[in-house]
């Protein structure tokens, strides 16, 4: 029995196998956003009708910002949920859609076909998406009354998460900030 070979062999292969085993617990597609817990980047965008939305002026009320596109299947899937959410919390939570690399005409057509749950904002040059570190649509950012990102959903939002975070944001007392 050659102990050196045994020890070196096990010393290399065991940790390697352990890490490979650990890897199953992670989804390689999901990257945690470093922005959760940080102030949301402020933006000022026009929607399809030319109305201007300024995030800073919505301070005091929770905001849900959803990056989406018509070619994205999960976006289609979460659409009814966002419709329902926007109706339920009308006047309490702002729902903002930011168009992610898509043609405004297609977005308008989609809104006409399926209904719209909020303004569809045109992100010229994708700069807002970059500021929010969006990997691909859909991604949803939950911004509390103080303008801090409290949570983020990658892929279609689950009803569970939407309800949970919305209630949490609504329960938070408004601090006196401009």
């Amino acid at each position: 029995m050659n102990r050196r070979v045994l020890l070196v062999g096990l010393g290399i292969s065991l940790p390697l196998l352990a890490f490979l085993g650990f890897a199953f617990r992670h989804d390689p597609q999901i990257v945690e956003s470093p922005l959760v817990g940080k102030p949301a980047p402020s933006f000022r965008l026009a929607d399809l009708d030319g109305n201007i939305v300024d995030l800073a002026e919505l301070r005091g009320q929770p905001v849900i910002v959803n990056f989406w596109a018509t070619y994205c299947v999960p976006c289609l899937y979460e659409h009814p949920l966002l419709m329902e959410g926007a109706r339920r919390w009308q006047g309490e939570i702002h729902f903002l859609g930011v168009i992610f690399q898509d043609d405004p005409d297609l977005i308008a057509q989609f809104n006409a076909d399926y209904g719209r749950w909020g303004p569809s904002l045109i992100d010229e040059g994708g700069r807002v998406a970059i500021a929010y570190g969006v990997y691909g649509p859909p991604e949803t950012f939950f911004i509390d009354r103080d303008g801090v990102i409290v949570d983020k959903a990658i892929g279609a939002v689950s009803p569970d998460q939407l309800l949970d975070v919305a209630n949490r944001m609504l329960a938070q007392p408004a601090t006196a900030t401009g």
Binding site: M1, N2, R3, L6, G9, S13, L17, F24
Partner: peptide, 25 residues
């Protein structure tokens, strides 16, 4: 298939290490 394959990799690695330790000399 992933976990099954990992099991096979572990089995092969163990067999190789033990075989080498026993017989390399």
């Amino acid at each position: 298939i992933g976990p099954v394959f990992l099991g096979f990799l572990g089995l092969c690695a163990a067999a190789v290490v033990v075989l080498l330790a026993l017989r390399i000399d």
